[in-house]
């Protein structure tokens, strides 16, 4: 399921970003380009961090941006941006962030499978470190495939 959504269109490596907001916009761009979310969805997920704080940094070095399904999700989707230079989210123990996911959910439950596979991946610290170190998107997809195999 996760690998149906994470592919060479939606996994990208970047050198860095200006700040956490820029990182979120960069990470969401593939979902815009592939018409999976509307522009306003990206704004909504940024606004949510402004409103609630950087709780989207769910683990050391890992952020999961998202907004609500009704904020402009066209189809369930997820993207992954790897930032070589870590980004400060002001997230206490979990900064700096190098992996930024953007999730577009269509309701409150149907992305359960995607998230549970993402969790398996994030619980595997050697896989996470290999992803962070990788300079090749197709290699990242292979790493994820190996974890989920």
């Amino acid at each position: 399921m996760l690998l149906d959504l994470l592919n060479e269109e939606t996994v990208k490596i970047y050198s860095g970003a200006k700040d956490w907001e820029d990182a979120g916009r960069i990470a969401g761009q593939p979902l815009l380009d592939n018409e999976m979310v509307e522009d306003r969805y990206i704004d909504a997920m940024i606004d949510s961090v402004k409103k609630y704080g950087p709780y989207i940094v769910i683990a050391p070095g890992i952020a999961l941006f998202h907004a609500r399904p009704e904020d402009g999700v066209k189809t369930m989707c997820i993207s992954l941006a790897v930032f070589k230079k870590g980004i400060i989210f002001n997230a206490q123990k979990n900064d700096p962030v190098k992996l930024v996911f953007v999730l577009g959910a269509i309701d409150s439950e149907s992305h359960l499978q995607v998230l549970s596979e993402a969790m398996l991946l994030l619980q595997d610290s050697s896989a996470v470190n290999s992803i962070i170190a990788s300079n090749d998107e197709s290699e990242i997809i292979r790493i994820i495939k190996n974890v989920l195999a």
């Binding site: 709780y55 989207i56 769910i58 907004a67 609500r68 999730l103 998230l115 969790m119």
Partner: peptide, 16 residues
């Protein structure tokens, strides 16, 4: 619990 009840809270639910 998380801000929107869509992402983090669902992950947390699975872990819990």
């Amino acid at each position: 619990v998380c801000g929107l009840g869509v992402g983090s809270s669902l992950i947390l639910k699975m872990t819990v």
